[in-house]
Amino acid sequence: MRFWKKRWLDELENTLPPMRQEVHDEPLPCEKNGVIKKSNAFRDWFATHKKRFFAGVATCVAAVVGVCAALPFLFPPTVEEPVKTPSALYLEINPSAVFSVDENGTIVAVVAGNADADVILSDQTRVEEIVGKTAETGVCVFVDYAARLGYLDLNTPSAVRLSGIAENELKAAVSGIEVYFREKGAYAVVVNETLSLAEFCSRTGIACASDAQSLVESVNALNRMYSKRQAEGKTDEEVQSLYGELVALEQLEEIIKIMEWLGMDTTALKALIELPQTLAEYTEKIDAYFMQTYQRLLEKYEEGYGQVRDEIAETDYEAYIESIEREYGSLSEYWNSLTNSQYSFK
């Protein structure tokens, strides 16, 4: 259901007429009385002492210019460069992902926080659209893929949460996502939280790090696919069971039935229904499954993603965020009301 408050505002916007001419033409009381502005003592003085005023201004300007010219020689400036450190960002939509960012603000690695994120990150070409980009750009690419695959419906009010350990990187990424939503005409909010190292590790499930550098190194060392991290150290039997949990086998069977009815080749899909016997087979099948899922979701949600929506003006977007904050107390509370999902990194 489209957000009812937005619907209400749209209804009123679309049905109410503009201001009537008689209202527009009604003179304001001060116009009627011939007084546009209140009396101003300075203005009265200026009207009679213009030459003296400009002479005074010229003298002041000359003095200021002289002092400014001498200042660099008297007090050489010492510009302190802000200390750059690596950082990390955690984006939750469902799907969820962690981005490690180097000291220059460039994404070094992106790892999936859950199996749905694997659908996006299963292909190296998509990863390359994210890694090597600024946090502001790369995070937006991930959000856009989430929207293309139907995980984020740009046509209904929604929210994403972005947490980070460095406020600058976080703010830049938040700003990027907000611009993306406005340009797409999406009433979606970015809930953002600056976390301590310990809080970040607790939220993501990543092993606690002593400093930002260690955290980033931990993230970089992880397999970017959630489904493959889950399989690490498991026996063949456990891997079979894991495959059954991650792959929507019943849904695949339904799709196969429809495809057979349409006379389409189902060989590849049928192979995915068979449980893997080894870890190697698991890896191969899970990759194929996510690639197939990516294509299927891309086609399924193409129309919704491509729907024309008017770009949202900055003031309207800010007003929308304010309305959410009024309704829920804070954006974090809004996020809590939408989801209580927890993602764990292993």
Partner: peptide, 13 residues
């Protein structure tokens, strides 16, 4: 608007 700014009044509307 009280200072005679009709543009402000239109914005208010």
């Amino acid at each position: 608007t009280a200072q005679g700014d009709n543009v402000a009044f239109e914005e208010l509307y």
